[in-house]
Amino acid sequence: MAAARTAARLATRLLERPWLWAFAAAFLVWLATIIFTKGQGGGEILSAALAFGTFSVIVGIGQMYVITLGPGNVDLSIPATMTFAGAASMKIMATQDSMIVVGLLIALACGAAIGVFNYGLIRLMRIPPIIATLSSSFVFQSAAIAYGRGIKIKPPPSLADFTTARIAGFPILAICTVILALVMTVVLHKTVYGRSVIAIGQNARAAKLSGIAVDFTRFVTYVMCATLAGLCGFVLSGFSGGASLNMGAEFLLASIAVVVIGGTSVAGGFANIPGLWGAALFMFLLVTMLNTFGLGAGIRLVMTGLIIITVITVAGGKSTDR
């Protein structure tokens, strides 16, 4: 009797976790795919989903922190930052393995610098975050194009090996990103900074009156988001055989989509890191499923869009006045 009640309570608890939905959806989509292929290639599909999902998760974490700051906060410069950091680091490394650490540091520094620039526009010039990150994305996208000269710059061989390596079918990069996600979960819930982000997103005025350093927290968040975009640009360049000029393009929408589908509140103040993984896997598996069914890119995109709108319509509604 008591055990049944405990189980029931556990079930309710689980159902309250929004990230569960993303994973459940991902699982169902995967199941549908392998039923269609009669069990063929289920493992490979999962492995590929993990590998490709990694990049959405890395930028998704940064975007999620920014969105959690509350209405109006979003970083539209993620693709430009990825491209810029990717191009700069690949060029400096010049395919030499010995330069990988330098290249990584360059990529991170590029990201951080763009983050500082973004927040400078937001804070000093009172530009709304959307416009600020939009205009800086124009500038850095161009800078990347001009700097990269339109050629795909190859990564050092060791970096390419590392980013595509697998252990027992699990991509090493995915494992690293799971660890990153865990660390960022701890940061979110267990540090003064993370608590501040959530508090500001729920009620910025109350946060200020509770003695939280609102400006500093916002600054750190924008810089961190851009730095993660820089990191993503670095590893993606390694993974896809070089920095190309439109490599960030799809990540503007992807970074926001995984945040929304993953169960983070767009109204701010409630963030959910496991959901990012669920959503990233789901997005990739959905594409795979529709491909397997022989459906074209058109249907795939329409489905993706409708799913985002359905999720926000079901989850939203009770959002704040903005």
Binding site: V192, R195, Q202, N203, R205, A206, L209, S210, G269, F270
Partner: peptide
């Protein structure tokens, strides 16, 4: 508007000023 963090527990609301 000035006080409550509506998504948090009672404990979270009490301790936010002192977590540092």
């Amino acid at each position: 508007t000035d006080g409550i963090f509506p998504l948090w527990s009672i404990a979270g609301n009490i301790t936010i000023r002192s977590i540092r």
